[in-house]
Amino acid sequence: MQRLITKQDLVNKLTELLKDFEVVGPKELSNKGIFYQVIEDAKELYLGQDFAIEPIKKFFLEPSSWILRHAKDDVSLESFPQSDKKRIVIGARPCEAKGLALLDKLFDSEYKDDFYINNRKRTIVVGLACAKPDMSCFCTSMQGSPAETSGMDALIFESGDGFIIELVTDKAKHILGSIGEDIKEDQKLNKDKMKALVKKVIKTPESLDKVFESDYWDEVSRPCISCGVCTFLCPTCHCFDLVDEEKKRMRCYDGCSFPDFTLEASGVNPRPTKKERYRQRVFHKFDYFKKNFGENLCVGCGRCIRHCPVKIDIADIVDKAPI
């Protein structure tokens, strides 16, 4: 279901929703870039085409969050209370929303992680289609597109002075179905055409098994400085640590690029050098996750390429892997 809405329609609707919902969207901070933040006034929203530095993931799997504490009796332990406030995320990109769909596969299966699930359940995700993918974007190689709706409840497209909104889920139809006007057939967007906007195209092998032992990983990981930029800014990287601080237990981001990630108390580290660590990142994304869940754990958002302090390009590395 697609509808035509004006910018004012959107601002008015969000202003109305602000009464009952927490609204999260992109804000432009001068000289710093775009950041997803809680919005207090619909006018603060940035709905331009520049990408946020961090993905929307941080509102579902927080960089750090308390999960346990001592109960009042000081003996038993209890969960940290979680917010059940309804929330609307606006302006997340199709790649980031697809990242959520991939995280769902992990956190909403087998041992279900209710912290993540609660954040998903209380949130409506309204995406913004990409009109200007940049040279790091490669979503179409990851079964995505600038107008993909996976992981979303609704998607808006820039169209002239206003937007076209596509309502995907009933949740979105219920809350946003009343704004704007019906769209005429000839105004409907050709979503397939948008795929051509993405210029970076790579091939991903079905399995990387054969190149595990290759010196290639040594070579491509050499520039890596073992920081956490790629993992923390990745919409799908989900590795975490559990840390106790002052009678509380916290879950916080961790990543395979850090030597400490797998360093055992005995001093043994099964991934002692950048080679093993970088290979783990590539294999987790383009081999292991695919074996376990049928898809690459990558959405082609390009963040790890765009923000890598030394310009390591994972897409190029996978594309050129000596299979």
Partner: peptide, 23 residues
């Protein structure tokens, strides 16, 4: 044995290949 945290196959550190030692 490997370093483990969550024990549930979510925290991502104890894999060998696509299998998690914990799970």
């Amino acid at each position: 044995e490997m370093k483990m945290k969550c024990g549930l196959g979510k925290c991502g550190r104890c894999n060998i290949g696509n299998l998690y030692i914990c799970k």
